[in-house]
Design a protein around this nucleic acid. Sequence first.
DNA 1: CCGGATCCAATGCGATACTG
DNA 2: CAGTATCGCATTGGATCCGG
Lengths: 140, 140
Amino acid sequence: MSTRTAGRRRAEDRSSHQARFASCPTNRLLDRIGDKWVALLLKELAEGPRRYSDLARTIAGASQKMLTQTLRHLERDGLVSRTITAAVPPRVDYALTPLGQSLLPVLRTVTQWAERHIEEIDTAHDAYDRRLPPDAGSPG
Amino acid sequence: MSTRTAGRRRAEDRSSHQARFASCPTNRLLDRIGDKWVALLLKELAEGPRRYSDLARTIAGASQKMLTQTLRHLERDGLVSRTITAAVPPRVDYALTPLGQSLLPVLRTVTQWAERHIEEIDTAHDAYDRRLPPDAGSPG
DNA sequence: CCGGATCCAATGCGATACTG
DNA sequence: CAGTATCGCATTGGATCCGG
């Protein structure tokens, strides 16, 4: 005779789990490096410090907004440093911090796995998609 | 005197980069494991096959929709297998494929880095946030 | 040259209802 | 038990304009 429906109770469960979820280091990290431009940005900065305009050219796919926003997040996480040279014209250099550099091997691990197994994934996609339309197959 | 503005040209640059971005194995993988529930799901399946309802209980934070959707994505990627036992009551078991298992070490790498450096990140957050309100400091 | 502010479209995700 | 379908809200990402 609970006044809470199963759905309601489930929602309460969820809200309590959300906090744990958000505070899980792994999820926090994945949330960051899952950001659309983070991997590319780190990869570029891995080769050395870059000016903002350099990054804008190299990561040409990103809008100014996303570039700046992503850099801010990374800076806030202590992964990149931002150095302002107050001059005319203004100049801002970004570089990996030691913490950011320590993340590079992790990214390389991800990249290696991805490159080594991407074909298997594509094959799996192919197989999965082929058997989905049930009106075409089912040959006797 | 091009008829295209700089912004327009930039947009064209971007669209051509989008394809390369989307087809980059690393980004594809990050896009997948960056999905909100993928890490938790793989972690749970790492310990052995699980029924749908088991997963729903363990990953209590996820809605049915997200659970199913995420499992479908993982299945399509060939990372998990889905086994239907046509009986009453219906029963569906999910398990990691060999491909999925090969991904576990990668996830462990991510997790280890995250857990080892999460404090540095928190410290960085703290420092970053503390110096943002510029109206308080600047002591002479 | 660097980036903040704002408006807008696309998508992600959750709640709910319904099916086999 | 194990989904599928639809709706609505919140977030994400992009275009553009404006300021230091």
